[in-house]
């Protein structure tokens, strides 16, 4: 079943005819040829397809394109406003927070989401005091919050400081 939609991606609007079956991930990769979100499992199990949907991180492989409506989709590439690398882009390179790079744009989007979630005071599974007023992004917190993004190259120990650097610079408690 073909349906007309308009996807707003990284600041640009794309009118598109998609199959109702088309996921947001496939619409981005196969239709718009946006290579930033990756496919590592197609079932919500790896996080490589993570994008920000109206600022919240989601697995684009499980979102049907027809359900996106006028929500703003932001990929890791789109975080580079005006071609300028995002602070997370710099910290990931500086900390060598990846090897093959395939999980990486998803990690970057997820990290952006983690920082916003912490800023909003959201707790995590390792937060000792659920009632605390604000969230503290300790290393253990970053590890837990970033665990929806598998990295088979296991750059985890470098991802943690890469996220921490940017969290700290943006005023999140550590």
């Amino acid at each position: 079943m073909d349906t007309e939609i308009t996807l707003r991606v990284d600041g640009a609007a794309h009118p598109l005819t998609v199959d109702t079956r088309t996921t947001l991930l496939d619409a981005l990769r196969e239709r718009l040829r946006n290579t930033s979100p990756k496919k590592g499992c197609d079932h919500g199990q790896c996080g490589a397809c993570t994008v920000l949907l109206d600022g919240r991180r989601v697995n684009s492989c499980l979102v049907l394109a027809v359900t996106v409506g006028d929500a703003e989709v932001t990929t890791s590439d789109g975080l580079a406003a005006g071609g300028q690398p995002h602070p997370l882009h710099r910290s990931f390179v500086e900390r060598d927070a990846f090897q093959c790079g395939y999980c990486t744009p998803g990690q970057v989007c997820s990290a952006a989401g983690v920082i916003e979630e912490a800023r909003a005071g959201w707790p995590s599974a390792v937060t000792a005091d659920l009632t605390a007023a604000d969230a503290e992004l300790t290393d253990a917190e970053i590890r837990e919050r970033m665990s929806g993004n598998l990295c088979r190259c296991a750059a985890y120990a470098n991802i943690v400081p890469a996220v921490a650097d940017v969290a700290q610079a943006s005023g999140v408690r550590r």
């Binding site: 996080g47 993570t50 991180r57 499980l62 989401g113 995590s124």
Partner: peptide
């Protein structure tokens, strides 16, 4: 808290958002 903890122990941050 039992409910918050159960939710936070489930799936991933991305999945919980959706």
């Amino acid at each position: 808290p039992v409910l918050a903890q159960a939710l936070l122990a489930a799936a991933s941050g991305q999945l919980r958002n959706r």
